[in-house]
């Protein structure tokens, strides 16, 4: 039974970081180009400096996404699942397998394109927010099957 020993943490695969950074670069890159080029062409080259704030935002976002991605990790212990996340606001969630009501694997169109899926656990308490985003589909399915099997074995009601 896991008690004092540090659990074996698993980080998220790099795919999620790649997807988020790409989205960031695409959107903010377009904005930077638009804000820099249009006033630069029509109002004078000095106005191209307007592109600096979105560019700064892009660089800052690049770093923050990396930090946020590194902060996500999860551990499957003998009887419960741990999820830890957050950089400034750290949050660590423990969900005993027996309390799981439903395990969900979701994947949006963009996520599917990058070959990613998220696993979400629901208990009878709506406040339980146990989501693991950006897993590889095979890992997501393995986790789902394992959690369901463990949940059935240790099932407990309300």
């Amino acid at each position: 039974m896991g008690t004092a020993a540090e659990p074996a943490w698993t980080g998220l695969p790099p795919g999620l970081l790649r997807m988020r950074r790409l989205l960031l670069v695409v959107w903010l890159g377009l904005l930077t180009a638009a804000v820099g080029l249009l006033p630069g062409l029509f109002a004078g080259p000095v106005w191209a400096l307007l592109a600096l704030p979105p560019l700064a935002l892009l660089l800052w976002g690049w770093v923050m996404l990396g930090r946020n991605w590194r902060s996500w990790r999860y551990a499957e212990r003998a009887d419960d699942l741990l999820i830890s996340r957050g950089v400034l606001w750290r949050e660590e969630t423990v969900v005993p397998y027996g309390r799981m009501q439903l395990v969900e694997v979701t994947s949006g169109p963009v996520e599917r394109h990058f070959g990613l899926a998220s696993v979400q656990l629901h208990t009878a308490a709506a406040a339980t927010d146990a989501t693991i985003p950006g897993l590889e589909p095979a890992e997501a399915e393995r986790l789902r099957d394992r959690l369901t099997a463990l949940g059935e074995a240790r099932s407990a009601g309300l």
Binding site: L88, R90, E91, T93, V94, V95, R99, T128
Partner: peptide, 15 residues
């Protein structure tokens, strides 16, 4: 016996 999940949170100031 009625606990469904346990969470620990820490904001920057609390840390």
């Amino acid at each position: 016996a009625k606990v469904q999940s346990v969470r620990l949170t820490r904001g920057p100031w609390e840390r």
